[in-house]
Design a binder for these strands. Structure first.
Length: 420
RNA sequence: GUGGGUAUAGCUCAAUUGGCUAGAGCGCCAGAUUGUGGUUCUGGAGGUCGUGGGUUCGAUCCCCACUACCCACCCCA
């Protein structure tokens, strides 16, 4: 059988890495400038963490996790998302006793066993940030504004922002009763999934895409209209905070999100350019999660975005910069002595952080010239025995074809001082 | 899990209504007076025609299965 990458995974080749680095470095800068510290947690965790953290009723836990047993019989799972591991780390490393809030960001791969299509893979990359230990909507606003800043810098500041509030442990149970009451005489005509959700997670009935279920949900009361006072205030101050920053948003009462841990604020940034998977970034508040995982009762809010989807968005708009790097100088060598001499200068220049190139295959002068041209070297120096013995060299300016004769000794200095 | 499409050179794609050495463009390598790039010309390397089985004198082509990829449903980043 031919060896290939596993389904839903892919190689990121050097050419594409330029775009990846561009996005990741920009994200890093944006986060650092807002006081967020980078964190890395393991690719796999004990399965329990996700069962409890992400939620037993979610699709992710029910059918999408890469779970396996190690040789010691422990059940491990490749992380399907980033937040659970970070919350675990927060608890385990005693971050609750640090000055609060703790602000973190991450760049990770995540794994979900799903059917592959445009914008959806089994191994995918996420950029994310979390604020732990801040109840106030100020934290929600800061995160969304951080994203606004990031997207603007990427040239996609017009991505659509949709927000909603899905209540808390106080208003959710009451709302669930309202929902059950509403669906009571409709549920028989709805799909099998919805019948199950009716018992396990009525909130999810709202965003079912089955035609008959959409029809049944036509006049459904939204939780955003049935919040407790605390949640309602939180949602109002979130909106005020966004408005003060002139951040455009749209309240979408249908957003409920598929992860159980969300409370109060949920939001998404949506694009039209990544297939039917329009969500480039999703996030929300997860008060109670830290407590549920064994920590103290600390609130949290965060987001994650799909790097691949972000790349698709940028690509479809032609907004990816061509940040190519070209050699400052290419040494064309002829024979061993010539190579040794050029290598020495090249080594010295590289130590001074200058990009130099040399042929490693003993190719002809012509082939080396071609290579220099292909790599878009700025200057070429041909170093044959003749030049070395006479302490002379010809610097060729590739763009203009201009040639200049200089002393061999002066090349290093000329390049360093950029006086060629 | 379900449905549709696709699978031929490193890449983008032809062709063979079942028959002899499966082609092109791009890319790669080399040469065009022996040590000088981009244009041009010439030559070369590179394919078990996705995998396995079947029908047939003979299969890259027809039939079946499998796998992968693309798209969609569900759900999500």
């Amino acid at each position: 059988m031919k060896i290939s990458v596993p389904k839903g995974t892919k190689d990121i080749l050097p050419e594409e890495m330029k775009s990846w680095r561009y996005i990741e470095e920009l994200f890093t800068d944006v986060c650092m400038n807002a006081g967020y510290g980078e964190i890395r947690t393991p690719v796999f965790e004990y399965t329990n963490l996700f069962n409890r953290g992400v939620g037993e009723t979610t699709d992710i836990v029910q059918k999408e996790m890469y779970t396996f047993e190690d040789k010691g019989g422990r059940s491990l799972t490749l992380r399907p998302e980033g937040t659970a591991g970070i919350v675990r780390s927060y608890i385990e490393n005693g971050m609750a006793s640090l000055p609060q809030p703790v602000k973190l960001f991450y760049k990770i791969t995540a794994y979900r066993y799903e059917n592959v299509q445009k914008g959806r893979f089994r191994e995918f990359n996420q950029l994310g940030a979390e604020v732990l230990g801040a109840d106030s909507s100020n934290a929600d606003v800061e995160l969304i504004s951080l994203l606004g800043n990031f997207f603007t810098k990427l040239g996609i500041g017009d991505l659509k922002l949709e927000i909603n509030s899905i209540g808390c442990n106080i208003c959710r149970p009451a709302y669930n009763e309202i929902l059950k009451e509403y669906y009571k005489d409709k549920i028989d005509g709805m799909c099998a999934d919805c019948k199950r959700r009716y018992e396990t997670n009525p909130l999810r009935l709202i965003d079912c895409k089955e035609a008959k279920c959409i029809a049944a949900s036509k006049d459904v009361p939204f939780i955003a209209d049935n919040l407790c006072e605390n949640c309602s205030d939180h949602f109002a101050s979130l909106r005020t905070g966004l408005e003060r920053l002139d951040i455009n948003y749209n309240i979408n009462k249908q957003i409920v999100r598929g992860l159980d841990y969300y409370k109060k604020t949920v939001f998404e940034f949506i694009s039209n350019n990544v297939g039917t998977q329009g969500t480039v970034c999703g996030g929300g508040r997860y008060d109670g999660l830290i407590g549920a995982l064994g920590g103290s009762d600390v609130s949290g809010v965060g987001f994650s975005m799909g790097t691949e989807r972000l790349l698709m968005e940028l690509e479809s708009r032609g907004s990816l910069p061509g940040n190519e790097v070209y050699p400052e100088i290419y040494f064309v060598t002829i024979g061993e002595k010539s190579y040794a001499y050029a290598r020495k200068i090249s080594y010295a220049l590289r130590k001074a952080d200058i990009y130099t190139e040399m042929d490693l295959l003993g190719r002809s002068v012509k082939a080396q010239m071609k290579d220099a041209n292909r790599k878009k070297a700025k200057y070429v120096v041909v170093m044959g025995e003749e030049e070395i013995s006479m302490n002379k060299a010809e610097i060729l300016v590739m763009e203009t074809g201009e040639r200049k004769e200089v002393s061999l000794d002066s090349i290093y200095k000329r390049i360093i001082e950029k006086k060629v």
